[in-house]
Design a protein around this nucleic acid. Structure first.
Length: 592
RNA sequence: GGCUCCGUAUUUCAAUGGAUAGAAUUUCAGAUUCCGAUUCUGAAGAUGUAGGUUCGAUUCCUACCGGGGCUACCA
């Protein structure tokens, strides 16, 4: 039973009965805590059709609902707000159906498919803090869509070719002495990253040397020997030179080995990988087709452009004068390829930093101009930079926070904290390790996901792992304590049940209200592409439960019906907490 | 210059155009015969500025102030 839609229908009926008017979408919102009731109908907009004051309008609707709806037991009116009180028996019925529904929180398949792209790393260096936000966001949005019935395809594009990887390759060739994974003992992506840093160091030294000899900065950058080598390697790569290809394959192989370790710890996964080396030539045909149709135009030097000035943007190049393609060209080529690979998807979601907002605006516009109807459904899941308390985190400034290091630190901190609290005595080593991983990663994920994606945010590692406050571990603790209650109920052989009670304490009603609101929140999160909605919901639910826990006895309750009901309530809260946090990729401990 | 995102308590974050702008944090004052006090209750404290639309604006519009990003025949 869906209480909200039932109530909406009843309100529509009431408005029709009282004012003889149809309304599409009654404006319902949760009632402020200071007033009695759970659902509030905003009646200001209805004053126009009722031709009465907002308060009188509210009263007339309220009277009709109490008399006819069967679910509203009483109401109060404050200004133009109609606060509705749902009877306890109705709430208990709502709760009973949730408790019985093993699949609560998961919509059955709606037959629709979407694709979510995230991560999309370059293969010349390790993943950093920004990638963590990217991966957690993309993965979580995919899970949220799954839970409301979509078939979701998780993909990434791996930027495995281009000048950046050739830089690492050049440095390895010059200074590597044939180093391998085995000989270095390093994680693969770290080893390749080391040469990328090495390249940069040597490159800068060569530039300043050339500048001192009187060259301009531009010339120096072009003429630096190590850069010339990297460019040469890129050309050889494009000509499929066997030696270059084998270095390229070897070094990318190292990176993939390293990345897979990092992804595993992050807890993210992909259904399909796209490699830029296989897609970078795509899109050219589409440009030529667009040129024929007059969507694009050619300049006298032979380069092909699209004119987006009518859409408030600039002109954008699509093919260079030498006929080669640019990033934009391959990106819409890849988009089209994906729709061929997965013909049923109705849109793509791209999880990419907000510095590429312009790029995606152009991309979607071009796709629309080419006649692809799905273009307008595509979405750029844009997110802001992550700052640290110590300062800004920018790769250019060389203060990159490595993803592996950060995860390791979080887990170590969690372990230290748990030890300090003296909770490890009854745990085996592997249980302790597992718990530290859950808490450390939970703290990290929750903190990165609780903020609206599009906002630039500050990540404070110390604050994120606190057991009190707006944190993942706080919610995990609440969960662990509930599980402890459930275990005790099991040993006492108390079966959770909803029988023999007809009324509730306010704190119990609040908890049920929060639980019943879960699906609304999931849909909002999907609509907004925002895991933050789910994160903040889980936090609210945990707090609501703690209030109940604090003020109402469970095992000291003498009425067995109430005792069983409260155990059932605890059980459902635990389930919903676990499900909602699961959508953020956060695991929940039985004990902590 | 053009485009775009952002500006909310000391700080970090909330608020489909709705009520006295919520949390967390910090400080102070309280609560446990009890299921895990890593909890709960109370107090203090904020919408960058100036207009406009609206019954009602943190939200929409305009201008300004402040911050980030984009504006490459780079990816």
């Amino acid at each position: 039973m869906n209480l909200d839609s039932l109530l909406r229908t009843q309100i529509q009926k009431a408005v029709f009965a009282v004012f003889n008017q149809q309304i599409d979408n009654p404006q319902l919102q949760p009632t402020n805590k200071e007033f009695e009731g759970s659902h509030t109908l905003v009646c200001f907009p209805l004053a126009k059709i009722s031709r009465k004051g907002p308060e009188e309008t509210a009263r007339l609707i309220g009277d009709h609902l109490v008399a006819n709806s069967g679910i509203v037991s009483r109401y109060n009116v404050v200004k133009g707000f109609l606060n509705l009180v749902i009877g306890d028996t109705v709430w208990l019925e709502v709760f009973r159906s949730i408790h019985a529904d093993k699949k609560f929180g998961e919509r059955p398949s709606n037959g629709k498919e979407i694709m979510v792209e995230y991560s999309s790393p370059n293969t010349n260096k390790p993943l950093h803090l920004g990638h963590l936000r990217n991966n957690f966001l993309g993965w979580s949005v995919a899970e949220i869509y799954k839970s409301i019935g979509y078939n979701v395809h998780k993909v990434q594009i791996i930027n495995d070719r281009g000048i950046h990887i050739c830089k690492s390759m050049a440095a390895w060739k010059l200074f590597g002495n044939g180093a391998t994974l085995q000989s270095s003992g390093l994680k693969g992506d770290k080893l390749v990253g080391k040469y990328y840093v090495e390249f940069d160091k040597v490159f800068k030294a060569q530039i300043s040397e050339l500048e001192q000899k009187g060259n301009s900065k531009e010339t120096a950058e072009k003429e630096a020997p190590i850069m010339k080598l990297a460019v040469e390697m890129l050309q050889k790569w494009e000509q499929k030179d066997p030696e270059t290809l084998s270095i390229w394959k070897m070094m990318n192989g190292w990176v993939y080995e390293g990345f897979s370790v990092t992804y595993h710890r992050m807890g993210v996964d992909f259904e399909r990988l796209y490699y830029e080396s296989k897609t970078y030539l795509l899109g050219k045909d589409e440009v030529l087709r667009g040129l024929d149709k007059g969507i694009f135009f050619k300049k006298e030097d032979g380069s092909v452009w699209v004119d987006l000035t009518a859409d408030g943007l600039d002109q954008k190049v699509l093919l260079r004068s030498d006929g080669t393609s640019v990033y934009m060209t391959q990106d819409f080529g890849t988009a089209i390829l994906r729709f061929r690979d997965f013909p049923k998807i109705e849109k793509q979601v791209y999880t990419v930093g907000n510095e590429q907002e312009y790029h995606f605006k152009v991309l979607f516009l071009i796709l629309a101009k080419l006649g692809y109807s799905w273009a307008k459904e595509c979405y750029h899941l844009s997110y802001g930079m992550v700052d640290l308390p110590t300062g800004k985190m920018k790769s250019r400034e060389g203060t990159v926070v490595d993803a592996d290091d950060l995860m390791q630190e979080m887990v170590e901190e969690a372990a230290r904290q748990t030890k300090e609290l003296g909770k490890i005595d009854e745990m085996t080593d592997s249980e302790f390790e597992n718990l530290s991983e859950m808490i450390g990663m939970g703290a990290l994920k929750f903190f990165l996901l609780k903020v609206d994606p599009k906002k630039r945010m500050l990540f404070d590692p110390a604050e994120s792992i606190q057991l009190q406050g707006h944190t993942g571990p706080f919610i995990q603790y609440t969960y662990a304590r509930i599980r402890s209650i459930i275990r005790k109920a099991e040993t006492l052989n108390i079966q959770p049940a909803i029988q023999g009670i007809t009324s509730m304490e306010p704190a119990e009603r609040e908890v049920i209200f929060m639980i019943h609101y879960y699906m609304n929140k999931l849909e909002e999160a999907a609509r907004e592409y925002s895991p933050a909605v789910v994160a903040n919901y889980a936090f609210e639910l945990a707090k609501e439960y703690n209030q109940f826990y604090q003020s109402i006895p469970i095992f000291n309750e003498s009425d067995p019906a109430k005792l069983k009901f409260r155990v059932a309530l605890s059980q459902v809260v635990a389930d919903v907490l676990k499900k909602s946090m699961g959508l953020l990729g956060i695991r929940m401990p039985e004990r902590m």
